[in-house]
Design a protein around this nucleic acid. Structure first.
Lengths: 161, 161
DNA sequence: AATCAAGTTCATTAATTACTGAACTTATTG
DNA sequence: CAATAAGTTCAGTAATTAATGAACTTGATT
């Protein structure tokens, strides 16, 4: 299928645009567009025509980001990968961390000011407050989603009965 | 002041970690830690000991991201830069765009599946729902912040009377 | 008009990062 | 215990990206 290969490259470029390795994007593109749940290391390597080294390091990068999960089967030497069920939480938690890092950076910056009553100090304080607001809201958003998700699942169960 | 230079380098490295040019981070670091509201191109160049070319391109990068604003004064050839009052909205809107881009990528991926009743299809659908949820919630969050901000400002006005 | 000042553009250089492929580790099988 | 299979590690290379510095543009000043 020609189109699927094109899609995989597209995801690769999308990832590259994000500052992450193109190959990591290709791996995700393959997982996303594949019908089968688990994909082997070998399949990734052959299908993406990449070196084992590149697959190894990029698969580990995606594992670190909790975007994929590693699976093994008894009596099978191979390693398989699936998209993470938990990737949603991983995404929000990653963002939360970076918001906190940003806030700390701003707080440090403001620390160099001697006068607290400048327009500049006011802007910076507001941005810091905004980050604090986000840090408080993000867990709430996560909760809200969990609740909504439950109701969707209940609805589905009702429908299929 | 020794410490401030260290801080500026720290912001530079932080930005580099984000996949953005180190110099752009240094510029932000300078703006954050400076007492004065507006900083001239010349001051950035001299203080950061960089070439005009590098300051020019990185200042334009930050302008594109709406993190800083360009100012001019009649009778003055120089250009000045301040931190953007609007950077908060810029940040949320940027995130919203990337969530939408991600959702579309997932939808395309799912389009290659022939069977809609696999566990994999279920995970991907859930992730797509989650992104749709975020797309709906982000504007609400922005509103919530605007309201909160107003009440903070009102409180401040009361206190100072 | 000629000069100067403030930025931009762009070719070159420096530095970084991703990828390959070969050597290595670890575990399994005949 | 040799042979094989699956991944990892790492040195070297290819490709990308950032920064410099000089030439250029634009607009103000004499």
């Amino acid at each position: 299928m020609r189109k699927r290969e094109f899609y995989i490259e597209q995801v690769g470029l999308f990832y590259e645009n994000y500052g992450l390795p193109r190959m990591a994007g290709r791996i995700l593109g393959h997982l996303l567009s594949s019908e089968s749940d688990a994909i082997s290391f070998e399949e990734l390597q052959k299908s993406l025509q990449a070196s084992k080294g590149s697959i190894s390091s990029n698969v580990n990068l995606l594992l670190n980001q909790k975007l994929i999960i590693k699976h093994t089967i008894p009596g099978d030497r191979k390693t398989y990968f699936t998209l993470s069920y938990n990737s949603l939480n991983a995404i929000i938690e990653e963002k939360a961390k970076s918001v906190t890092a940003f806030r700390k950076l701003f707080e440090k910056g403001i620390g160099f000011h001697t006068d607290q009553h400048t327009p500049k100090h006011e802007i910076l304080s507001e941005i810091i407050h905004y980050y604090q607001f986000l840090e408080k809201e993000m867990p709430l958003l996560k909760e809200k989603w969990e609740n909504k998700r439950k109701t969707i699942h209940n609805d589905n169960r009702k429908k299929s009965c």
